[in-house]
Design a protein around this nucleic acid. Sequence first.
DNA 1: GCAATAGCTAACAAAACTTGTTAGTTGCCA
DNA 2: TGGCAACTAACAAGTTTTGTTAGCTATTGC
Lengths: 162, 162
Amino acid sequence: MRSPDELSEFLRANGLKATPQRHAVFEALHRESGHPTADDIWARVREQMPTISLRTVYQALHDLVDLGEARIVTVGAGAAQFDRNTEQHDHFVCRKCEAIFDVVSSRPRLMSGFPDVADVELPATDGSGPSGARSDVVEPAANFQIETAEVIFRGLCAPCGG
Amino acid sequence: MRSPDELSEFLRANGLKATPQRHAVFEALHRESGHPTADDIWARVREQMPTISLRTVYQALHDLVDLGEARIVTVGAGAAQFDRNTEQHDHFVCRKCEAIFDVVSSRPRLMSGFPDVADVELPATDGSGPSGARSDVVEPAANFQIETAEVIFRGLCAPCGG
DNA sequence: GCAATAGCTAACAAAACTTGTTAGTTGCCA
DNA sequence: TGGCAACTAACAAGTTTTGTTAGCTATTGC
Ligand SMILES: [Mn+2]
Ligand SMILES: [Mn+2]
Ligand SMILES: [Zn+2]
Ligand SMILES: [Zn+2]
C-alpha cells in the first residue's frame, strides 16, 4: 500500500495529475474492506467529498488499474469489483451471500512452482485460429504462454453456515 | 453428451416439455466450439430454425444450466459464456484474442486431492458479517465449506504467438 | 384424438452497469 | 501565472439480460 505522498509522486511520474479526487478514490479503495464496486467506492468517497461524480470514480479506478495499483476481480455477473490487493492471491466466493474472500497460502500448498507451469496440457487448435478453438481434441501445447493463474473457490462461507 | 432421445426423456422427467427449440439449443451448444455466448447460440440455431427468438434461447440455456447440462463460465466482463463441458476442468484465457480454452489434466498434476481441501487458510470475518469480510486479517478457517474450485490461467495462446 | 396448458413469438420496456460526449469551470504544476 | 489536464453536470447510449403481455402453437397426459 502506497502512502498519499508516494501516490502523488507516482501519479506525476506517470504523467497524471495528483488530484484530490484520485487521492480520495485511492484511499477509499484501501479503507473499504473486501472487494468493492465502483458504486461502493463512490459512496465511501462522497462522505468526505460530496460533489465527486461517479464518472470521475470510474476514471480514477481505471487509472489505478492501469498503474498496477488495483485489480478487477471477476467471479460472476454483475458490477465489476475492484481489488486493492495486487499480490498474487486466490478468492473464495460464497454461493449464498456472494461475498468474496481473499484466500492466502493456497498457492504454495496446492501448487508448488505455480504459475511457472511448462507442460500443462492444452487443447489443440486445429488450425482454424482463435475462434475455432476446440475443447474435444487435447494434446500437450507448450506454446501456450501462461502469465498468471488464479483459483476461484466456491462454497459456503463461515457466516452463512459453512 | 446426451443424445436427443435422452434429452427428451430427461426434460420430461424434470417436468419440462421436449420442444424442438430446446433440442435445437442443446444441439447448437454441442456443435458450437469453445464457449459460446447466448448470441452465438442464437445465430447457430437460426440457421435451421429462423424464427426462434433470443428470449427463447436464453430460457432454454438457463433450463440446461438448471438441469446440470451446461455451465456458465465467467472469466471477465461482457456476455456470459456457456460451457457444454460440465466435467470439472479449468480454463485458459488469452489476453490478446480473449479466446477461452479448456485446460485438462492441470488438476491432477498441480493439485492432488483438489478440491477436497480441508485446511486452506481463509480470512477471519471479524464478526461483522459477510459484507464486513476483511482481507487483512488471516487465520485458518475450517468452517469455510469449499464445494468447487476452478483455475483460470491467463496469458498468450498459441495462435497469438504464445 | 382432445383438451389443458406449457411454451413460443413478437414487441417492447426496463434494469443494471459502464462508457461516450460535450461544454463550461476548476485547479494542478511546469 | 498560463496552459491544459481534469472535474462536474447532464445526458445519451451501448450492452447484456430479464420482465411482461397478449396471442398463437404444439406437447403431453389422458
Ligand atoms: Mn482479492
Ligand atoms: Mn470449458
Ligand atoms: Zn456467505
Ligand atoms: Zn489468443
